[in-house]
């Protein structure tokens, strides 16, 4: 089972869109978990941003027994020390990932709010970050959610459905076998 939890406030409609995309992309049951409190120590005053690594540490402590993976969703603008910002971060081949909605919102870029656009972007980013937890790395196919797309036009060119190559890698991945085994075990 893939768990999805808001870290702090997050719009329910966007969370739903992310859950639907995750279910379709990974063919695993997805479950909404209770919202998690924001880790205050993640805030870096010098950058006025939030450390995504601290978010991941917090999420790791919150993985429920029945979940193979946990995705946190935040409105905060995230960063890692070497980069000016990130849309999200994941443990490569690990259990947890986080997606920030801050820069996915059109209004962050001076455009009028567009809930549908936000939901579509958030869905693709959710599959991207959770894909990393299944061991997938960046893909060259610009339409694949695993592609590295930072600029908005590229970001909007992404779909939430992994390309054939990534889907094949996903099927053969050790992480996917484990997740399936865990889900089967939970059902029994």
């Amino acid at each position: 089972m893939l768990g999805v939890a808001a870290v702090g406030p997050a719009p329910a409609l966007v969370l739903s869109a992310m859950e639907t995309a995750l279910g379709e992309a990974f063919q695993l049951p997805v479950q909404r978990l209770d919202a998690i409190e924001e880790p205050a120590r993640a805030f870096a005053p010098a950058r006025a941003q939030w450390s995504s690594t601290v978010f991941l540490e917090e999420l790791l402590r919150r993985v429920p027994p029945g979940a193979s993976h946990l995705l946190g969703v935040t409105e905060r603008d995230l960063f890692v020390p070497v980069l000016s910002f990130v849309y999200g971060q994941a443990q490569l081949g690990g259990q947890v990932a986080v997606v920030s909605l801050a820069r996915l919102r059109p209004e962050f870029h001076g455009l009028p709010p567009a809930p549908a656009v936000l939901a579509r972007r958030a869905a693709a980013e959710a599959v991207h970050e959770v894909g990393h937890t299944f061991g997938l790395v960046h893909c060259r196919d610009h339409r694949c959610p695993m592609s590295l797309s930072i600029d908005l036009p590229d970001l909007d060119g992404k779909t939430a459905t992994p390309c054939a190559a990534c889907a094949t890698l996903l099927e053969g991945s050790r992480e996917m076998r484990r997740a399936r085994a865990r889900t089967e075990g939970g059902r029994r």
Binding site: P81, L83, L148, D151
Partner: peptide, 8 residues
Amino acid sequence: KPCHPQEI
């Protein structure tokens, strides 16, 4: 650093 993610 910090640099734009795509730059690296």
